[in-house]
């Protein structure tokens, strides 16, 4: 059911440039981009239960590998592929080391990766342009055409990430990752090669981020270290996945959509309170929605509400009788 819903949703997003203006198309691109990032995070954070904050490192590296390849004269599509493969290889090498950490330690280690990669990129001025950033060859065409193209590409990446999620969910890999999530020692004991499974999840969580980063660089035409390796991005993406429902198929897409729309609304109406509202959403999630929007039992909720209402009514009735 969720697969059909995601297909319909993707088609609806793809139709936006036909019926709406540039502003709406830009939001649709954001929605597709963050959906792809949240779906990626879901492999390591949702299925495996490792709270990764490395998203911005993968995204930023994707931006830079893509931008540098394009500046070296490669066509955009080739640059995107190189960025994907490069980031995946980076995650595989790194995963073998960092996945030895667990829980809070892993979370802190994964944030450190964002900072370290950002520092390397900004200090390595001769190659990356340092703090001045890099200009990326612009895509040819009118703004409308370019925006529509970027939207289709981002939607394709989101679709790819979703298909990968469905495949993993139904395979041995997904089963093994869920076992690791529930009890890593027990998973090891029943024969799950936990190290290899975790690295596979980490690589899956990285490669779509790398691709999204490279496409993003082509879209905006200019990247710099602070923007590419943003700590806010690294926090926002897990929050989106948690908002929708970590470990579910469509949860990250729901979460990313809701979050981007909320953020847009708050940006437009409460500019100064924007960050505070992100904080409130995080606190709200932890206390009231640990399973995410998709895990709420809406039927039970309705039943409870109606039960309360009828209980109130019977209370007032009996009070009335007592008085009478």
């Amino acid at each position: 059911m969720s697969i059909a819903a995601v297909v319909a949703y993707t088609i609806a997003l793809a139709l936006i440039p036909q019926f709406a203006g540039n502003y709406e198309t830009r939001i649709a691109i954001s929605v597709a981009m963050f959906s792809a990032l949240a779906l990626s995070w879901n492999f390591i954070g949702g299925f495996t239960g490792y709270p990764s904050f490395s998203t911005a490192a993968f995204f930023g590296l994707g931006c830079y590998i893509g931008a540098l390849s394009q500046r070296a004269g490669l066509p955009a599509e080739a640059a995107w592929m190189i960025a994907t493969v490069g980031v995946a290889a980076f995650a595989a090498a790194l995963g073998a080391i960092i996945l030895r950490l667990k829980g809070h330690y892993f979370a802190i280690g994964s944030i450190a990766i964002v900072e370290v990669t950002r520092l390397i990129i900004s200090s390595w001025g001769s190659v990356t342009g340092g703090g001045d950033g890099l200009n990326v060859p612009l895509m040819t065409g009118t703004p409308d055409v370019v925006a529509a193209r970027i939207l289709y590409i981002m939607l394709a990446v989101m679709g790819g990430a979703f298909v990968a999620t469905v495949i993993v969910d139904r395979s041995r890999l997904g089963f093994g990752l869920r076992c690791i999530h529930q009890n890593e020692d027990a998973a090891d004991m029943v024969g799950v090669d936990t190290t290899r499974f975790k690295i596979a999840a980490f690589v899956l969580s990285a490669l779509f981020c790398g691709l999204v980063g490279a496409v993003y660089a082509s879209w905006v035409g200019y990247i710099d270290p602070t923007d590419s390796f943003s700590i806010l991005l690294t926090v926002k993406v897990p929050v989106m996945a948690l908002l929708g429902g970590a470990g579910t198929l469509a949860g990250p897409i729901v979460g990313a959509g809701v979050f981007v729309l909320l953020e847009e609304f708050f940006w437009a109406n409460f500019l100064q309170w924007n960050r505070a509202i992100l904080g409130i959403i995080i606190v709200f999630l932890i206390f009231f929605l640990p399973g995410g929007l998709l895990k709420i039992r809406y039927k039970n909720l309705l039943k409870k509400l109606s039960a309360n209402r009828s209980a109130d009514r019977s209370n007032t009735v009996s009070e009335g009788e007592a008085k009478g």
């Binding site: 041995r172 089963f175 029943v190 024969g191």
Partner: peptide, 12 residues
Amino acid sequence: AGAVFGGAAGGI
């Protein structure tokens, strides 16, 4: 989980 990862069972 025992059958899939530790045993001989091919698929889920």
